[in-house]
Design a binder for these strands. Structure first.
Lengths: 160, 160
DNA sequence: TTGACTCGGTTCCTTTTCAAGACTTACCTG
DNA sequence: CAGGTAAGTCTTGAAAAGGAACCGAGTCAA
């Protein structure tokens, strides 16, 4: 079962939260669409123009994200009916993923000039990088400082 | 230029760190391969068996990640020559991305039973969720509490 | 010394997905 | 009524993924 074949639609049935998350946002275009959404882009043509994505693919991605509750399709005009897409709470919760990726890209691919974008933390007023912190003690967390073990929702077989 | 067509190989020339990061890890299989790597999987057949990925695709992903310096191909046996793949520092730096995704998946897709995996922060000894924190003040950061503006590496046009 | 097994791939073939851009529908504006 | 706009859909060819078999170098076991 694990062995033979796996369609991406099946991922959401797997007992791995990463796989489930990737079934929703694990597509290349999807995260770029969300980047634009975080920059307050909301309309079909604006996504299309800024991303250079095939309209057919954009329509599919927006429909998928809407079905998953990451975006919300809202009518903003009645005649003719026009819609826009807005981030839901669930969508906003993806911000750490995107910002981590951006800062990883900044750290490893920005040229001598520095990063193309700066992020200012309104609360403290400074430009910052994202840091992965522990929800309990608040200290920074590193990959090898984490111990992984099966949780209550784990399935038999496949502890990973 | 931005308008007409875009191959994924071109992304690394774009002045957007997210796009550059996605050119490296923005593929569905790639992040699952890295998940396994973080769980200390190192060998071709072990990746193949655990993921159920087509070997052809696995070979391509490992080669790409190696070329990008995310993994390192190390010979662990001379006769016959056998290789394994290890995370580099650059690869380890992707941990926040993966953990953010896992915890987003936990938050939105775990059933009543709870998350399939628990993560314990060795430093403080508690199970935790990942939190996006500000590198300057250490406080938690939310999507709408961040102000984005062009940085030193920005290009004309396309402030996004 | 033959035959089975291991590991790290490669090859072949079919099925999906993607890119590019023309086309459509419904309405508004001049 | 010609033209424009927003949000899509349709069509066609090219690229990538999935599946499964095969390969080469060496080890092991009888």
């Amino acid at each position: 079962m694990e062995r033979s074949g796996m369609r991406w639609d099946d991922l959401d049935r797997e007992a791995c939260s990463l796989a489930r998350a990737l079934a929703v946002v694990g597509d290349r275009w999807t995260l770029l669409v969300l980047r634009e959404a975080f920059l307050r882009v909301r309309r079909f043509d604006e996504f299309a123009a800024r991303l250079g994505i095939a309209r057919r693919v954009l329509a599919a991605r927006l429909a998928h994200l809407t079905a998953e509750g990451v975006l919300e399709k809202v009518q903003y005009e009645a005649r003719p009916p026009r819609y826009e897409y807005r981030l839901t709470e669930k969508g906003l919760a993806l911000y750490p993923v995107i910002l981590s990726l951006v800062h990883w890209g900044d750290a490893h691919y920005a040229g001598r000039a520095g990063p193309p974008l700066l992020h200012r933390h309104r609360a403290c007023g400074h430009d910052f990088r994202s840091v992965l912190a522990c929800s309990v003690c608040g200290e920074a967390v590193e990959a090898r400082g984490v111990e992984v073990r099966p949780g209550p929702g784990a399935r038999r077989r496949r502890p990973a």
